[in-house]
Simulated scan of single mutants.
Amino acid sequence: MNAYQLSLFPDEPPIPIAPHTRKRQKQPPAPKPIAIAETYSTAKLADFLGVSPSTLTRHRRAGNAYTKGSWTAKPLGKNTWTLIYTPPTT
């Protein structure tokens, strides 16, 4: 699309205007998850996250990871968990 700036005087021709282009701002890279500890027992992890051990057991039996805020606990075995921290995006 061509844009022109019109003059106030009738004898001057319109002046073509270059199209405006807006540069996209780069998004900061997403924060990478940090593995805090490879192995935690269910009782120790429940105490750290402030939840009941049965909550973690329920998630393990369902085959899901448990997430609370920026913390994610992934089950590795019957009584073994790995804890991952993902920094919040700003």
Rank of each mutant, 00 (worst) to 15 (best):
Pro29Asp: 13
Arg58Leu: 10
Gly50Arg: 04
Ile84Glu: 03
His59Phe: 12
Thr82Asn: 06
Ala18Pro: 06
Pro88Tyr: 05
Leu8Pro: 04
Asp47Thr: 15
Arg60Asp: 00
Trp71Cys: 00
His59Asp: 10
Thr39Met: 06
Lys68His: 09
Lys68Ser: 10
Glu12Ser: 09
Arg58Phe: 03
Ala73Arg: 02
Arg24Ala: 15
Tyr66Cys: 01
Lys74Leu: 10
Lys32Cys: 04
Tyr4Ser: 07
Asn79Val: 02
Thr80His: 10
Pro14Cys: 07
Glu38Asp: 12
His20Ile: 15
Pro33Tyr: 08
Pro14Phe: 09
Thr42Tyr: 03
Thr57Ala: 10
Leu76Gly: 08
Lys32Trp: 01
Thr82Pro: 01
Thr86Cys: 05
Thr39Tyr: 12
Arg60Tyr: 00
Leu8Ser: 11
Ala18Gly: 04
Lys32Ser: 14
Thr57Ile: 07
Gly69Ser: 04
Glu38His: 09
Lys26His: 11
His59Pro: 00
Lys78Phe: 06
Ser7Cys: 13
Ser70Ala: 12
Leu76Trp: 04
Arg22Lys: 10
Pro13Ile: 04
Asn79Pro: 00
Asn79Tyr: 08
Gly63Cys: 05
Arg24Leu: 15
Pro10Glu: 13
Ala30Asn: 08
Thr82Ser: 13
Glu12Leu: 15
Leu83Ile: 05
Pro14Tyr: 09
Leu83Asn: 00
Phe9Gln: 13
Lys78Ser: 10
Ala73Ile: 05
Leu83Trp: 02
Thr72Ala: 04
Pro87Ala: 08
Leu76Ser: 03
Arg24Ile: 09
Asn64Pro: 00
Pro33Asn: 05
Leu45His: 06
Ser54Leu: 06
Pro75Ser: 15
Lys44Ala: 15
His59Ile: 00
Ser41Pro: 02
Arg58Ser: 13
Lys26Thr: 12
Trp71Gly: 00
Ala18Tyr: 04
Ile36Phe: 06
Thr55Trp: 00
Gly69Pro: 04
Pro10Lys: 13
Lys44Ile: 05
Ile15Met: 12
Ser70Val: 02
Met1Asp: 09
Pro75Asn: 09
Ala35Leu: 15
Pro10Tyr: 05
Lys44His: 12
Leu8Met: 07
Tyr40Val: 01
Ala30His: 12
Lys74His: 12
Phe9Cys: 08
Ala46Thr: 09
Leu56Pro: 03
Phe48Leu: 14
Pro53Asn: 02
Arg58Gly: 02
Met1Phe: 08
Ala37Ser: 13
Thr80Pro: 00
Thr42Ile: 09
Thr39Asp: 09
Thr55Pro: 00
Lys23Ile: 10
Ala73Met: 06
Gln5Asn: 08
Tyr4Leu: 14
Phe9Tyr: 12
Asp11Asn: 12
Thr86Leu: 15
Pro88Phe: 03
Leu49Asn: 08
Thr72Glu: 11
Thr86Ile: 07
Ala65Arg: 08
Gln25Ser: 13
Lys74Arg: 15
Arg24Ser: 14
Ala35Gln: 15
His20Trp: 08
Ala35Asn: 11
Lys44Pro: 00
Thr72Asn: 03
Lys74Tyr: 11
Thr57Asp: 09
Pro53Val: 04
Ala73Phe: 07
Pro13Asp: 13
Leu45Lys: 03
Lys78Cys: 01
Gly77His: 05
Lys26Trp: 05
Lys74Thr: 15
Thr42Gly: 03
Tyr40Thr: 01
Gly69Val: 02
Gly63Gln: 04
Lys74Gly: 02
Asp47Gln: 15
Pro31Lys: 09
Pro28Tyr: 07
Ala62Ser: 11
Thr80Met: 04
Pro33Ser: 05
Ala3Cys: 07
Gln27Asp: 11
Ile34Trp: 11
Thr21Ile: 14
Pro14Gly: 07
Trp81Leu: 05
